[in-house]
Amino acid sequence: MNTKSPHIILEGSKEYKLGELKGNEIVYDFNEILTYLNAKGKLLFGTGFKIVIEDRDVLFKLCNYFIKDEANCKKLDIDIHKGILLTGPVGCGKTSLMKLLRHIVPHQKAYKLIPSRNIVFGFNHVGYKTIEDYGSTNYFCFDDLGVEPIGRHYGKDCNVMGEILLSRYELFLEQKVKTHATSNLNAQELEERYGNRVRSRMRELFNLIAFDSESYDKRK
C-alpha cells in the first residue's frame, strides 16, 4: 500500500488510479474503480472473470460503502457504520465481490472471509470456544450464511451462526465492530432459519444489498 498515494494501487508493475487526492481526501472515480476491479478480479479468480453491466447498481452501492462516500450512501440509504449483508441467487458473484472489494481500500481494516459451514464444523470439533472466537473484535465476512448445518457438540444441538450473530450484535453496540455476510436466502428465509430475535438484530447489524432475483449463475 502506498501511504502517500492511497488513491493509487500497484499491481505488479501496473498502477491503477482510483481517483484524485485532494488534501487528505480521495475523490474517487467509479469508472476507474471498475477498471481496477476488473483487472484485480482476473488476477484473483482467473482470466474468465469480468465485471458485467447488469451488476453495476449493486457495485455502485458496494463501492460507495467501502470508500465511505457519506453523501452517496445517504442517498442510497446505506449506513457506513453498519456491515453489509449481500444477498442473491447461487452463483451471482457475492463471494467474489466480497473478496474483491476490500482491495480498493487497502488503508482500511481488513475482514476475513469465512464459510459459515466451516465455522459449524469447527464448533462440532471444539465446541463453544468457536462461538467465543468469532465474538472477538476482528472483522469477519460470513460466507453463505443460512445454509450451514445445525451444530452438534457432545450430543447437544446449537444454531451456531445464530449465536455468533448475537455476539457480533453486542460487539457492534459496544465497540462498533463491523460484521459482513453473504447469503442465498432472502429476509423471510433468514428469519425462518434463525428466528425473529436474531433477524431483528441483523437489521441493526447490516445494510441489505441484494442482487436481482433473476441474476444469472456466472459459474456456468
Rank of each mutant, 00 (worst) to 15 (best):
M1Q: 12
N2F: 08
T3N: 11
T3H: 11
T3Y: 13
K4I: 10
K4A: 12
K4D: 12
S5E: 13
P6F: 10
P6L: 07
H7V: 09
H7K: 06
H7G: 04
I8E: 11
I8Y: 09
I8D: 05
I9D: 06
I9M: 05
I9T: 01
L10K: 14
E11K: 15
E11Y: 07
E11L: 15
E11S: 14
G12C: 09
G12K: 10
S13W: 04
S13N: 15
K14S: 12
K14M: 11
K14L: 12
K14W: 05
E15T: 09
E15A: 12
E15Y: 08
Y16I: 02
Y16G: 02
Y16W: 04
Y16L: 01
K17R: 15
L18D: 04
L18C: 07
L18N: 00
L18R: 04
L18T: 03
G19F: 01
G19P: 02
E20M: 07
E20F: 04
E20R: 13
L21E: 06
L21V: 05
L21R: 09
L21S: 03
L21G: 00
G23P: 02
N24T: 13
N24L: 11
E25N: 13
E25M: 11
E25L: 11
E25H: 13
E25K: 15
E25P: 01
E25S: 12
E25D: 12
I26G: 02
I26A: 05
I26H: 01
V27E: 13
V27M: 10
V27R: 12
V27G: 00
Y28N: 02
Y28Q: 05
Y28A: 07
Y28H: 10
Y28K: 05
D29G: 02
D29I: 00
D29M: 01
D29P: 03
D29C: 07
D29L: 04
D29F: 04
F30R: 04
F30V: 11
F30K: 00
F30Q: 02
N31I: 00
N31L: 08
N31Y: 09
E32V: 03
E32K: 15
I33W: 02
I33F: 04
L34S: 04
L34E: 07
L34V: 12
L34F: 01
T35E: 13
T35G: 02
T35R: 13
T35Y: 06
T35N: 14
T35C: 05
Y36L: 03
L37M: 14
L37F: 08
L37R: 02
L37T: 00
L37V: 06
N38K: 09
A39I: 02
A39P: 07
K40V: 06
K40W: 03
G41C: 07
K42G: 09
K42N: 08
K42E: 11
K42R: 15
L43W: 05
L43Q: 15
L44D: 10
F45H: 05
F45V: 03
G46Y: 03
G46Q: 08
T47K: 13
G48W: 06
G48M: 09
G48Y: 10
F49Y: 15
F49Q: 04
I51K: 01
I51P: 03
I51A: 03
I51W: 05
V52R: 14
V52M: 08
I53M: 07
I53N: 11
E54Q: 15
D55S: 11
D55Q: 10
D55K: 04
